[in-house]
Design a binder for these strands. Sequence first.
DNA 1: GTCTATAGAAGGATAGAC
DNA 2: GTCTATCCTTCTATAGAC
Lengths: 207, 207
Amino acid sequence: MLGDVTSENSRGPRGPYAKSAQLRKEILDACVTVFADNGFHGSTMSAIAQRAGIGQTRLLHHFASKAELLTAMLASHEQRMAEIIESTGSGEDALRAHVREVGRNRERRDLVQLHSIISAEAAVAAHPAHEVYRTRYDQLRLHLTGVFAELRGAGRLKVGTRPDILASQFIAMMDGLQLQWLYSPTTVDVADHLDAFLSTLLIDDAD
Amino acid sequence: MLGDVTSENSRGPRGPYAKSAQLRKEILDACVTVFADNGFHGSTMSAIAQRAGIGQTRLLHHFASKAELLTAMLASHEQRMAEIIESTGSGEDALRAHVREVGRNRERRDLVQLHSIISAEAAVAAHPAHEVYRTRYDQLRLHLTGVFAELRGAGRLKVGTRPDILASQFIAMMDGLQLQWLYSPTTVDVADHLDAFLSTLLIDDAD
DNA sequence: GTCTATAGAAGGATAGAC
DNA sequence: GTCTATCCTTCTATAGAC
């Protein structure tokens, strides 16, 4: 810092690191596939390296451990989920946005597998992704509780329902339907069944 | 068979096997705990043996491989699920029976973890439990579709709902709520939220 | 940053004595 | 049926040359 006229730390990676950044990205992509198929426990550094088309030691040079690889990969996806929560408008639009997002996963079986297997593994406190997932579920429930509460205020919710319970139910339905879809892609239509669920809850907007 | 006057094969294990049967049971119990915490991939024969209080080679003498251990353990539980499907009366009683069963799992966190992690791992075709779980989900959907269809016939179902979709939704809700309960046992009440779901679907019986 | 080589531990599974 | 000893493989991770 002091007197270092060439310092550019605040502007992110300099020239030589550009290639590294690209490689890191490719490694993280390889991670998704391998972790999706075998979970954290069943995946090996060698398998990930092979998938990324590099050697095992080279992989280890960029990510010091398997746990670091998992958390880095999850962090790179976390951003996208945050966007969905923030960006959406209010009320029903917010819910339909979630359904649309889940519907897009039809083309990304790897992402569905990844979520299903890691979320289940990480339910154990010792798992490297435990805190990340606990926080994620808490935030998502909080967000959706707010959305349903808003709908309640607008008189759009069927009587006898509670926003906080609906939030848990909606998340459960997303997770559970995606799991069944993995087993029977032609039988279970995630987006369709989610829409059906919302239809049983919401009173038609009459404006 | 031919001329073997001492043959008692058709009456199950003879004397000397009684101890083996007991040990097998203890091993399978140890399995539940270990597989529940680490899944199939993350569990080791040594860990299971240690949990069962025996040596690794002794474990291997009774179950030839880890995959055999998993399938034997699942088979010993399959029976219980079949009973729930068969035994229950009709209509709403059948659904409430499922809710009660899931409610009992509050005292069996290990079983919930086991189901969550194995069902997610086994979504990959190469997993030793893949076929078992695919079949289980198919049968459960079939069973519940019948139950909901019956309720539809009795005029107990809200309009705009479809028995087959409700079956998928109900299973998804069970799986998904149990997963959230693992992360937040004090926030998510599985049986309560399931009951709430059924309440939004069913028209009160007026007889 | 990348490579070869390899350590050191743990994995599943087998052989053979008792 | 149970034990000790052990094989072979694979795992994560390190060291050091280039």
